[in-house]
Design a protein around this nucleic acid. Structure first.
Lengths: 342, 342
DNA sequence: CTGAAAGCGCTTACAG
DNA sequence: CTGAAAGCGCTTACAG
């Protein structure tokens, strides 16, 4: 089917316009518009007549016409610039998404979820988002150097990022959990439990979660034996592989701080296969407090990210942005959650 | 921030319009429009000039203005009318979503994911979708009697459902896996392995997956002891509870057909707790072939839904709909996947 | 192949 | 409080 064909098909069902409701209400189009936009400066009888006419005709505003004059769409994009799988694996995105949707709904703004996992997706989404479809964007993208941010910036589209945008802190608004502080909490806790040989499995070092959590680890332990530090990829299997590497490099380790819960669960599986008991032989601390943390056996001691507050702050910042405020950053505190693994 | 304030803020960054590019290209607005829409009936030099002008000005079409005249938005909604959690738990939605996105991208149509888990969400989404934002919708909604379908229908918005819309088969387009046939495959297989006392855990009976898979079970076994049939809610814990009930009602069962993989995994956990071995004492068959089926221990014997084909067919039907075709239904065959649980 | 003009359906000063 | 009118940024017959 070609575009003209689709066009023709749509034309067959004409929707009532404002003129239609004005006609049945016996008022002018301007009056109809006024009741639609709050009903200020409209007499009681006129208000009633218009409302009745709207119901009778089944009128719904044509958003394109409205947006053309207001220069607003009253919707913002939630851009997921991650491989899609990660989204669906992580219930925290769920919480974030729902939180943002609700916050925005209170301001009569619709949230559109767009997924930009592949390079091609990102180009398409960039085009969509800058074509006036949305007033702003919430972008979730952990890896540094995403060209998407450049696109948005070049277009002057207001947006706020989730997580510290490596190397872009000065010019983009973001809200993030205190990754570094959280890591410090966990590593300090492991030390307070008498652990002497504490290793770490970091996230990818082009993500803020990778570098900041490692920085927090170093804040507590200083310069450590480099064999204690191994980099993972946030995945379950990646965590298991990293753990195996650690066991080879430093067989005498008695604790490990893992930069994500998913990797931590993989690490625990690897420890079991190697005959090490958790936490007796090796204590394991995660990060995120995602769903697996509470369902895995043993329960995972971890750092909780303040998901609900993150979404609230993201929306607040974006609204401020839309109102013309300069960019800003918000760092939210984390919380240690003790379960059985450490 | 009020709407007028947002408005004012947006006005401060004027975007180039078609007139701007026409001016720098030294042609009329009409010519610019023609190159934007395929470049037919435009001379080589004019084409070049316009393209250069577009690059120079950084012009991006104003989609609202375009949609206002074409009466199309070139985007369709993917409406998830489920409690949000389920989406994020089930990797199959992932596949479906990605498949639809790609199919549509080939037709230059953007897919917007909207989540309508709560009643309030559904109303908001209904309004959004019928305000002209999208040309059509793909709706995922398993429960019967969703008012969303009525809204869409009343507005004349073309849409296609995923899964048989109970009681609405005659007036709504849908594509579905052959739930009934798949259930028959599984129950026949259990019988062929020598199982004599085959129970079933159904899905909710206001979903097509609930009734159709039960119907398939009955197709093979006829009228059975009613204690062999128990209804679950598609969740892991619901599956476990249903299994416990079955063990109480019919302790001598030697097989169970469970209407979803997630429930099946819960059922297996309950069997273990009761000291029954799987598949030695009790064979367990699932439905969906979702991720848990291959990662659980033992691996789950199940019925695979044709996710990729489902998305392709949904898009095809929707495009036909947009072109004015009448509604239609497509049923796709399933496949038995044998692992260890049966 | 190209331009001038009408029109898509709204909002919003501007008069009254 | 209300109407007439201009204008948002496009597309598309219509002439030429």
């Amino acid at each position: 089917m070609t575009a003209p064909e689709r066009n023709r098909a749509r034309r067959t069902r004409p929707r009532p316009t404002m003129d239609d409701v004005a006609a049945v209400a016996g008022v002018s189009r301007g009056t109809v518009s006024r009741v639609l936009n709050g009903g200020h400066n409209v007499s009681g009888p006129a208000l009633d007549a218009v409302r009745r006419a709207i119901r009778k005709t089944g009128y719904v505003v044509n958003q394109h016409a409205r947006s053309l004059v207001t220069q607003r769409s009253d919707s913002v994009a939630f851009i997921l610039s991650e491989p899609q799988d990660r989204l669906f694996e992580d219930p925290n995105f769920n919480i974030l998404l729902r939180g943002c949707t609700q916050e925005l709904a209170e301001h009569d703004i619709t949230l559109l979820l767009t997924i930009a996992g592949t390079h091609e997706d990102r180009k398409r989404v960039g085009r969509y988002v800058t074509a006036g479809h949305v007033d702003g964007a919430l972008v979730i993208s952990s890896h540094a150097g995403s060209p998407l941010l450049d696109d948005l910036e070049a277009r002057g589209l207001p947006f706020v990022a989730c997580g510290r945008p490596l190397g872009r802190e000065r010019d983009v608004s973001y809200v993030a959990a205190d990754d570094r502080g959280g890591a410090r909490q966990m590593v300090s806790y492991l030390g307070s439990r008498g652990r002497k040989r504490i290793a770490t499995i970091t996230g990818p070092l082009d993500t803020s979660g990778g570098v900041d959590r490692l920085a927090g680890y170093r804040d507590v332990l200083g310069e450590v034996d480099p064999r204690l530090v191994v980099t993972g990829d946030y995945s379950h299997d990646g965590g298991a592989e990293a753990m195996e590497r650690l066991l080879r490099q430093v067989p005498d380790l008695d604790a490990v701080f893992v930069a994500s819960d998913l990797m931590a669960v993989g690490a625990i599986a690897a420890l079991h296969r190697a005959g090490r008991r958790v936490p007796d032989d090796v204590a394991v601390g995660g990060f995120d407090d995602s769903k697996v943390a509470s369902t895995s056996v043993p329960g995972l001691t971890t750092i909780r990210q303040p998901w609900a507050r993150l979404s609230a702050e993201m929306v607040r910042l974006l609204l401020n942005h839309l109102a013309g405020d300069a960019h800003a950053a918000v760092i939210l505190p984390t919380e240690l959650v003790v379960r059985d693994s450490a």
